[in-house]
Amino acid sequence: MHPNKLGWLLLAPTMLILFLFGVVPFFYVIWVSFHQWNPFAADPSMIFNWASNYRQLVFDAQFMASLGVTLAFVFFAVLSELVIGYLLAQAFMKDFPGKAFFRTIHTLPLIMAPIIVGSIWKLMTTPSIGIIPSLLDSWFGYNLNIGQSAMAAFITTVVMDIWHWTPLVTLSLIAALVSLPADPFEQAQIDGANKRQIFWHITLPMIRPAIIATVFIRLMDAMRTVDEVLMLTGGGPGSATRYVGVHIFKEVFPRTNYGYGSAISVIVLYLTIVVCWLLYVGLIAPRNTKKG
């Protein structure tokens, strides 16, 4: 058999699965987004309504508010994870007693399902039984109630996301850091460069591909966060943590507004691609241009 044919044959099962469970549903969602479809309406059938759903969402204050808080959530969560993840990665590059133990403990949140993470944080933040309100009250006299305070709820969801996903960033950056050659660092030290200069001019540029890949992954994940937040706050108080993922969930499942929910999903996918593209243009393209 011709090597090319064998290659295609071996790839065929994966491509078939991707086509059935990735490509087909994607185009189906696009198709549904051009319909008015609620199976519990007086007329439960799909009614083609051109781009009405897309027009509607531009004027949907709830969706716009949801998009705003999502972007804020993504910004604070991903940036914090990057900074903390890098610091932890640097810490784990050094030897200290119990390093292996701490590295294992620190990665444990990664293996937890988001719904479990949400449940744990709900227990930890519920007034009267949660350890976090109890400690904040005894240490600072601060009354944490995420069912009441929009800001507290927002910050708690960000902190929960940081707790859950920083280990991923740490692991990626450790992998990048251990693969760095020693020569440039030795030369920089011989030339008298200080730690800040070494970080800024050598470490950061060399691990930039790893940072960008990690940011892309986290950004896409954070944009579609649902389970944890739904379990922790239900999107509340009010709409303070009704991120687009939660908004889509509530539109599509309980409200069974399939057409409109699909339109929102498509737009959110488009926005995620745009944000990633902007990052690409801002961080990678200039460097490639300089190289060229």
């Binding site: 108080p237 009010g238 539109e251 409200r255």
Partner: peptide, 22 residues
């Protein structure tokens, strides 16, 4: 009513804002 969850979810965002005092 055959539109139970639909009506609830349509009005719930306003309801939650009443609860928060917004």
């Amino acid at each position: 009513y055959p539109f139970h969850a639909q009506l609830r979810e349509a009005t719930a965002p306003i309801f939650y804002q009443i609860l928060t005092g917004a």
